[in-house]
Design a protein around this nucleic acid. Structure first.
Lengths: 198, 198, 198, 198
DNA sequence: TCGTAAGCGAGACGGTACGTCCTGTCTTCAG
DNA sequence: CTGAAGACAGGACGTACCGTCTCGCTTACGA
């Protein structure tokens, strides 16, 4: 599939051809997987997808936009619900690190963050995406609050921030193989810090 | 000084000309300050420093190397010693955010992180640098341990990691104007989490 | 009329819509008038005519074909009949230069000649057109022959060629503002050269 | 030589590399010869010369500039001096037509004229070149004047114009295989027209 | 009377070329 | 014998057109 299927692909009239879109996204993923962010250029993607550059620019105005869509097509990492906040967060981080380590997702997200340092639209998109994820992690905290594991006056957003920051930095400094015990220790420090005072 | 002084600078014979090196580093800093990472190219630096590109490549084999040297020339942010770990860490983060916000340092460090995502030498340099900083922040924790504010079995490295991660993410997502109260809350969560159990 | 009227123009069933054809030709003329040959593209014409590109390609298989039809819609320059061959030819050239200078015709014809240098159909069309014009100018010579102003054995086609060539070159080298006296001198040299030997 | 020799060609320091310039001009000539004006693009020339596009743009700011230099590298057509103006001019045209027909020169010059219809710099360059050629042909006339074959008050420039125009139009309408007798007749008409009145 | 066939505006498609910017390497030459 | 200067091959950028295609619609015409 993908590059091969692209052979002979044509327009399907005055509307977007989903085959082309798919081929382009798959090609983008392939380029990132095989050549990394350094080799990720619109030209390379177009070549691999057997698509014209303007077709890419028509739908994704910047490298960042394409990167985001590629990232969003990736499988989501599952967030456990063990009934215990420490296990939930440690499990989530473990899953996330494994996901980033073993699929192209990690490379893609790293690239997106890097791109955001020089491209405003990437920055905006990343901010948007982060907001969504913050809510997601926030729900874990809220559940724990309901169970009485977390003090009622704790700001779930800040906790989510701490956890996400920890993950980002491990991604950006190539430490996704972090020891489980270390992850758990980091989580424990935070979880203790937000526990209700007895 | 700087770009201006470069006018007419000439070779000083069979050794590295420190005037040139200075002019190049200052030009690099200037480019980063004014055009950001997006506009940071060897060409731009050479143009601004009135230097030849090969002169730059001779001494800094990659953009990353130049970036690192530029970053290391920056003033360090001071780490307070208030006798209280929460105040120490919150003050440190406040100072750090202000430093990154108000000097080119923020732009430079962001660029270095971005560069590290596609350049191995930048990644290595960044890892090296981070190790040093971890020790540095770690000492704050160790002092607190000595004062009995922090449990003895706490891994200072992990705490330093959490704090640094929080800072990085704010830098990378353009949130250096974070409210003091928020910073303090985040710090408090961690500080409480590592306090000795009574 | 023209671009404005095009708004909302639709198919009128299974036959060519003359409104569209007109709008396209007028748009083509407009583009040539305002942007010259350099700006003359099928896209630009379609945009201005509010027509689809395929509608243009359906009826004019190439830029050349459209150019030819546009040129043929132009008003012809009038050929004086003063009873004197020198006045006839000089007047004709003067009129022709003015026509080319003051209407889009000049731009269009220049474009057609240029196009003919890389497009065979344009070349063929131009040859066809030139043959017609040669006959036309030839008649001026024949009239003069009948009046005894021109030797009987003169080849009218060659004379027409000389006159047309002179005109073309002035068009192609932007010398349509040539002095009347110069034009008349050129004509006189030829007219004398074909006069009957006394 | 040419494309082959280009393999591995490098800069020779802070000055123009004549090997590159040669390779580019030869490649340009080759492209024109084999693909004609329609296939003449800077990309194609760069590809064939194994040169970077910027190297071409550095020295020839437009297609026209390159075209002109290519044309000027061509062998000049020789202008006979038979002592008789009719023979001189007819011989010159015959030679010119043969030259244009049998070498790439014809294609190149046609292309240059076409280019001049949409590119101002080409037009200017062509005007400049034409001025030079007009003087050249003019000298044939002046010689004839000195011999008493041509009236003293004849404007040599206008005669040169007539002759050059005749040649251009034959080039542009693909009639370089014109019969010698026809050429001679055209020349005779003009020569008679500028002979001194007895 | 109605189905069908063709023309229409629209615009996406795979491509090619544009002219610019940058990369990292190379050579020359002034000092 | 260094270092500045800048040319070089190459490749990516984002844009403009090319000529082709299909869509969804409208209308004329033949069955």
């Amino acid at each position: 599939m993908g590059e091969a299927a692209a052979r002979g692909r044509k327009s399907i009239g005055a509307k977007r051809n989903p085959e082309s879109a798919d081929a382009i996204i798959e090609a983008a993923e392939g380029v990132l997987r095989e050549a990394g962010y350094a080799g990720f250029s619109i030209e390379a993607v177009a070549r691999r997808a057997r698509a014209g550059k303007p077709t890419i620019y028509r739908w994704w105005p910047s490298k960042a936009a394409l990167l985001i869509e590629v990232y969003q097509r990736q499988k989501r990492v599952e967030t456990p619900d063990t009934g215990n906040i420490e296990d939930d967060l440690a499990g989530f981080l473990k899953n996330l690190f494994a996901h980033w380590r073993d699929t192209p997702s990690g490379n893609i997200f790293r690239s997106l963050i890097a791109e955001a340092q020089s491209d405003g639209t990437a920055a905006a998109a990343l901010a948007e995406y982060s907001k969504g994820r913050r809510g997601h992690t926030g729900r874990m905290i809220e559940r724990a609050k309901a169970r009485g594991e977390v003090a009622a006056d704790v700001d779930a957003g800040i906790v989510a921030d701490l956890i996400a920051s920890y993950a980002w930095r491990h991604l950006l400094t190539d430490r996704l193989d972090e020891d489980d015990a270390m992850i758990r220790a980091a989580v424990r420090y935070v979880v203790r810090g937000i526990a209700p005072t007895p």
